[in-house]
Write a protein that binds this DNA or RNA. Sequence first.
DNA 1: GTCTATAAACAGATAGAC
DNA 2: GTCTATCTGTTTATAGAC
Lengths: 223, 223
Amino acid sequence: MPFKPPTDSGKAGDQTRMALMMAGVRLFGAKGFEATSTREIAALANANIASIAYHFGGKDGLRLACAEMVARRIHNAVGPALQTIDPGDDPAAAQQAFEMVMMGVADFLLGQAEAQDIAGFLVRELGIPGGVFDAVYAELILPVHRSLCSLLGLATGQDPESDLIRLGAFSIAGQVIYFRIAHVIVARRMEWQSAGPEEIERIKTVLLSNIRAFIATNRKPVP
Amino acid sequence: MPFKPPTDSGKAGDQTRMALMMAGVRLFGAKGFEATSTREIAALANANIASIAYHFGGKDGLRLACAEMVARRIHNAVGPALQTIDPGDDPAAAQQAFEMVMMGVADFLLGQAEAQDIAGFLVRELGIPGGVFDAVYAELILPVHRSLCSLLGLATGQDPESDLIRLGAFSIAGQVIYFRIAHVIVARRMEWQSAGPEEIERIKTVLLSNIRAFIATNRKPVP
DNA sequence: GTCTATAAACAGATAGAC
DNA sequence: GTCTATCTGTTTATAGAC
């Protein structure tokens, strides 16, 4: 029982493996792990039910593999953007970098169709402390949040690891995440017919204004 | 098959009914609807498995009854507080009222142990458009959000139903809700050992600061 | 690697005694 | 109203042919 094929891609058999993970993320994210049957997953992936057990050792193995794929996916998407940024010691550059990162995150979370599945999957998995939580936290959430705190600290002149900055970064990131998970509610209240680029722009306008208000309010006056 | 007993309380049989609903909210909120078995619910409520079918017509009936109870519970908790407020035409009074309401919501969501179950239940139910969503939206979310927009509009001098105020109210309420659903993540990042009143105060400090920053930033200058 | 067939466990619902 | 016992369908996992 090879739990993992020797190569990650290129071989013919890995196509099924990838299709199963993508179907898993979509269905787990949309309906929840327990509410999704392996039959549904196999059907969506155009694969056989037994292939789940063959490739991942079972439904739980697929869950973990989905989590790893999602974490890798986001890490590759947002990681380089964060590490390339070098604001030096310029608070204004740090603020601009922070704004661009958050706008990019908003575009991804609110715009990309697949982001809905990924976000739903992560929200569900991160709601329960056990299992997938630890890996995603250590590999994804902690480093990204640290980078955000670093930028926010430089932009405001505050200690990046202070309560204010750490909680402030959560409060800003939380707004973006909230607009993703509560998008159905927001759309109904705003009487939006669709979820197009125009609606995303309106949300981003408020988010950007809130970011600037936070930095302006909490900026430490230079001595 | 009496789907609902004639009286809502006082009778002996309603004790089981209430216990089942409370167990349902807790387990549905913590694990999800499909992940929870009727046997678990009955065990937690110290009731018989068949009592669910007797009192609610089945598992789906219990789900709806739980949603109604939760909506009623929150409506009774936050409704009077919102309607008693009469800021008149004073923007400062409106701002203070808004701040007090949001701090009260934060205390409830972050402090009360049962709020975790309720919040989890609502977040899960509101994530799927069908079923419970419509009722909770119309009876709870819409009126509360309208009241919040009314206060926020008065405090800033903006049109309460403008995009800015409606989305702004969501962005503020979203922060509170995010700190509830992501509390495990936040606690780990903040290296908090417990979730006591001290930690809640730190979160509320940031929330209050963000509320004031929003109002100050978006205040319309009087002509 | 992929598929069919099947096993073993578990789900929710219900009939009927009390 | 409450309980036991049971029915029926579905779930995941697996054995074995190809």
